[in-house]
Amino acid sequence: MPIEILQTHKLLASCEQALAERYAVHKLHEAPDRDALIADLAQRVRGIAGGNVDAALMDRLPKLEIIANFGVGYDSIDTRAARARDIRVTNTPNVLNDAMAEITMGLMIALARRIPQADQFVRQGKWLSGSFPLQSELNGKTVGILGLGRIGKEIAGRCQAMRMRVIYHGRHRQELEPFVYYSSLVDMARDSDWLVLVAPGGRSTEKIVSRQVLEALGPAGRVVNMGRGSLVDEAAMVEMLISGKLGGAALDVFENEPQVPEALFGLDNVVLSPHQGSATHQTRQQMGALVVKNLEAHFAREPLPSAVV
């Protein structure tokens, strides 16, 4: 009999096809009665493909052995509960580093040069009446990176290519990195022109970018959030963007996405993106393939390519 797995949300078509070729897949997100499906599968499901897995769902699946998350962030999975139940958890790191770094730089340039506004300036025929206002450059600016992990390092390298000075804050100093380390996020924000957020979500980082941090960044500073909306005190950020106490923001993630604060829509000092950091064909294909590889490795009793727990 094929191994039975539970798919908790829609995945890339190529990933779903690969899963279907190897396993008996039950799609929780398509079930008319989710509770009934879980009850029926309780003694048979050995793996989960996807996220959004809490302790209660784990308890309803006593045969569950592995949760293969689609994405590098796994804050939608209760890893503490998984560890207590001896359930393995994997994610899909590295394959999305370049895509994330590219869009980060794209959003930074779009905000610095007001590219969305310049596009509208041309489309609306305003160029016929005069030139677009002068804007700023990344060259010569200091960028503070919150979360110098795999993605953070790729962003740092690209920032250096733009002739920016890189500094960083994290839980620990990384002795082999050439960038200046700040133990205080407030101090780093005070010394930064740009604050780039690529830290993971979760309780330990919730609203780590507080009003105090944003005030330290100041009216000339700009924040770029590529991590999770929960990292920022969103209400304070919106208020400060409106009042001019914060210079600008480029945001790919939001606290209650896809709900975005309407107050941001009318602001000229923001660039908004629909959580598309890793949303390229090649990256998502690789992420889906890694989900499948982790499941295959587990059921073959081989080392997991990208274990979290």
Rank of each mutant, 00 (worst) to 15 (best):
A18W: 08
L195H: 04
N269V: 02
E65L: 12
G140W: 10
L290T: 01
E215I: 02
N139W: 14
P258T: 01
G50K: 01
A220K: 15
L246N: 11
A161S: 09
R284K: 14
L107G: 00
A42F: 11
R44V: 05
G170T: 08
L246V: 06
S273P: 00
A82I: 10
N139Q: 09
R222F: 01
P305K: 04
H169A: 08
M237A: 03
T8K: 12
E30R: 13
G106M: 10
C15M: 08
R158E: 10
Y74Q: 07
Q174L: 14
L37A: 11
S230E: 14
I167N: 00
A263V: 04
V213H: 10
K141Q: 15
R22C: 00
C159E: 01
A99R: 05
V122D: 04
E206W: 12
L41C: 07
G227C: 05
V186L: 14
P305S: 02
T205H: 07
Q286P: 06
A220E: 15
R211V: 07
G73T: 04
A42I: 04
A24T: 14
E239Q: 09
E16W: 00
H172S: 14
R158A: 01
D40R: 15
P219T: 12
T283A: 12
A297H: 12
A156T: 07
H169W: 02
A82S: 10
R113T: 01
S243Y: 04
G248Q: 12
H29L: 01
Q17D: 14
H29C: 09
S192D: 07
N97Q: 12
R88K: 15
S136T: 15
N91S: 07
M1C: 08
Q43F: 07
T205V: 02
A13Y: 00
F179M: 03
S306M: 09
I145G: 02
L195M: 02
S14D: 14
V209N: 01
G51K: 02
V209M: 01
V122K: 11
N69S: 10
L96N: 09
G144D: 12
I115C: 02
V260L: 04
D78H: 03
G140A: 05
I5Q: 13
I3F: 08
A99P: 03
V25N: 06
A300H: 12
A31S: 15
P178T: 06
A101Q: 03
Q43E: 14
Y182V: 05
A118S: 09
V122L: 14
M108C: 09
L146S: 04
G288S: 02
V122S: 12
E296K: 13
G73I: 05
F299A: 01
L267S: 00
A297N: 03
Q212P: 06
S273V: 00
P178V: 11
A112R: 07
S273Y: 00
S278P: 00
E4Y: 12
G201A: 06
R80S: 11
E154R: 10
S131F: 13
V180W: 12
V291A: 03
D35I: 03
G277S: 02
M240Y: 05
Q17I: 00
S184I: 05
V209W: 11
D54H: 12
G71K: 04
D33K: 15
P133Y: 06
V53D: 08
G221P: 13
R203K: 15
R113L: 01
L111T: 10
S184K: 08
V253G: 01
L61Q: 11
T8P: 13
G147V: 07
Y74M: 05
F299K: 08
G229T: 03
T92L: 07
